[in-house]
């Protein structure tokens, strides 16, 4: 038996928003520790890794490990039926071929349940190696989204160049060229508004705008985003999810010819 209760179901709506542009379907692996999802997009350029710890939920029970293959368009249809303030309960029997989503209004006067068929997905699990990154940039997630959106008007690629002075995002194309430089913030009132850079050595890498823009669909999950970069390895874009865990996106760099 699997059962997870979430008082504010808006978190799951935001998670779905954050993954559905990259993935059509995904396996939600449920265990005692929580819910994990790991999947590459169809072109194997990016990978989504989601971790929601069981202790973040208001109630969580998972007697046996359960892998739920879910069509994300179907799940989106169901989650659209929930109010942001509804209490969500997800339930599945062991070895079930369906999962139930129950939404209760705050005053408990409206209760809806939606039964969704699970699908068989033959997804392989990947080991992500521990990496010491040359540069770790933390910045407001809204600022990162804005930069990706603005630069995508100029070209298909964004060059991210990090030194100890700051980080520079550049794009170029038919219209011309665009450069956005962010320095580390000297002092800010709120931690979430800070730009901080931990640099071992400078790094410059090129990434596809399209994927970066898809990652920024997670902006609503966290006020800050962390970018980790090393030469010739995938970029990691991480959004923390409150008391639950995180969503991480890995993106293969573009290779100069």
């Amino acid at each position: 038996m699997f059962e997870a209760r979430l008082v504010q179901c808006s978190m799951l709506k935001k998670v779905l928003e954050a993954i559905k542009e990259l993935l059509n379907e995904a396996t939600f692996d449920c265990s005692d520790a929580g819910i994990q999802l790991q999947a590459m997009d169809n072109s194997h350029v990016s990978l989504v890794s989601l971790n929601l710890r069981s202790d973040g939920f208001d109630k969580y029970r998972c007697d046996r490990n359960l892998s739920m293959g879910i069509n994300l368009a179907s799940m989106t249809k169901i989650m659209k039926c929930a109010g942001n303030d509804d209490v969500l309960t997800i339930k599945a029997q062991d070895n079930a071929d369906n999962v139930m989503f129950m939404f209760e209004s705050q005053n408990q006067e409206k209760v809806s349940d939606y039964d969704m068929k699970l699908i068989n997905l033959d997804q392989e699990h990947l080991g992500i190696p521990e990496t010491d990154y040359s540069c770790i940039i933390k910045m407001p997630s809204g600022e990162f989204a804005r930069i990706c959106r603005d630069l995508s008007q100029f070209g298909e690629s964004v060059v991210i160049s990090c030194t100890k002075e700051g980080v520079k995002f550049s794009a170029a194309g038919d219209v011309g060229a665009a450069n956005i430089k962010l320095a580390q913030t000297a002092n800010v009132d709120k931690e979430e508004e800070a730009v901080t850079i931990e640099m071992q050595e400078p790094v410059t890498l090129t990434f596809a705008c399209r994927y970066l823009n898809s990652f920024t669909k997670a902006t609503a999950l966290s006020p800050q985003v962390q970018l980790s970069m090393s030469a010739d390895v995938p970029l990691v874009v991480e959004y923390k999810i409150g008391d639950f865990g995180h969503i991480r996106y890995y993106l293969a760099p573009k290779i100069e010819e």
Partner: peptide, 14 residues
């Protein structure tokens, strides 16, 4: 010009 790399080489299949 640049070509898009893929992730396949970076991660080990468990």
């Amino acid at each position: 010009s640049s070509t898009q790399g893929r992730l396949d080489g970076f991660f080990k299949v468990l």
